[in-house]
């Protein structure tokens, strides 16, 4: 270097490499701030559990668990109050069943078709369509069910009422199709190509390879996608609130108005229910059932995939 003083010398004097206190402090402080934000997710879960259980415990001081689980009438908003959860449960199950009956075959067929049969051009068209379907807000699906699907169903099915489980279930199924398709396709995509080639090598047709080789190999993922779809259907709110009605009826007739667990929570929330009233507490009792139901399904799905995944190297 030509200069007398090298620019390299303009650094703080070298020490014994022990840490600079200010820098150390800053690093540690940042670490703890980040840790604190990361723990917020745990706080959220705790918050959900505590706020649900708190009000639910108050609820069960006034209503016996036996009545809750054995009574078949749900009339907490009427003068004669009955607190049997079953009408809400059967309604939720009925709509979810209809939704899955639409979503699982269709979603699975789409997944198999896209991964085993379709050309890349078809995939490039279908995938974005599915993404858009998945991104449509649920309130829009509710509108769709009430104003378009129900009138069409009324044309064909005698006794079909304006609010009914069938219409809500079908539209909910359409909403869930993308989820089933994408999760199943992931599972099918994870099946090694060598397995397919082995079957093709034996002279199998595409259909045989898809149904007898690929689907069985991807079965754990497909089952998991079905369970997650069920969880989604049980927790779905707006479609049923708009299209399935708000009449807690203990029935499996898909043509008449019913009320799911989620729709009940919406119904109470729309009214001016005072805090700490029994009506207010019912939505937490229903909410906690909803939470644990979906929680169990989600845990089961994740466990199932891990437990029964075929290991390929």
């Amino acid at each position: 270097m030509a200069e007398d003083v090298s620019p390299f010398s303009h650094y703080p004097p070298r020490n014994d490499m022990s840490s600079r206190a200010s820098r150390r402090f800053k690093e540690e402080a940042i670490r703890y701030v980040l840790l604190a934000t990361a723990t917020l997710s745990i706080v959220t879960t705790l918050g959900i559990l505590l706020s649900l259980t708190g009000e639910t415990l108050f609820f069960f001081r006034e209503v016996s668990l036996v009545e809750f689980l054995t009574e078949t009438e749900w009339t907490p908003l009427f003068a004669i109050k009955k607190f049997g959860i079953w009408p809400l449960v059967t309604a939720t199950a009925l709509v979810a069943f209809i939704a899955l009956a639409v979503a699982i075959p269709t979603g699975l067929l789409i997944a198999i078709y896209l991964s085993e049969f379709a050309s890349t051009r078809v995939r490039d068209v279908v995938k974005p369509v599915l993404e858009v379907l998945a991104g449509v807000p649920t309130v829009v699906y509710g509108y769709f069910a009430l104003t378009l699907v129900t009138p069409i169903l009324q044309e064909f099915i005698p006794g079909m009422r304006i609010f009914n489980a069938l219409s809500a279930g079908i539209v909910m199924g359409i909403m869930i199709i993308p989820m089933v398709a994408s999760l199943s396709e992931d599972a099918i995509g994870a099946v090694p190509q060598a397995l397919r080639e082995g079957a093709y090598g034996l002279g199998a047709t595409r259909f045989e390879v898809a149904l007898q080789v690929v689907v069985p190999a991807a079965l754990s993922g497909i089952v998991a996608s079905a369970v997650l779809a069920l969880s989604r259907a049980v927790g779905e709110t707006m479609i049923v609130s708009i299209a399935a009605g708000q009449n807690p009826t203990f029935t499996l007739d898909p043509r008449v108005p019913i009320e799911t667990m989620t729709a009940y929570i919406v119904q109470v929330s729309l009214g001016d229910t005072p805090f700490a009233s029994l009506e207010y507490r019912t939505i937490f009792a229903v909410g906690i059932m909803l939470f644990f139901l979906t929680f169990a399904m989600n845990i089961f799905a994740h466990w199932f995939v891990r437990r029964f995944r075929e290991e390929y190297d």
């Binding site: 070298r14 020490n15 014994d16 490499m17 022990s18 840490s19 600079r20 820098r23 150390r24």
Partner: peptide, 20 residues
Amino acid sequence: LLEGTNVYADAVDPVEVRRR
């Protein structure tokens, strides 16, 4: 030892080591 100081000593900060 870097210039006589053990870089694995307790008081040493690896960040400072890497600067040198």
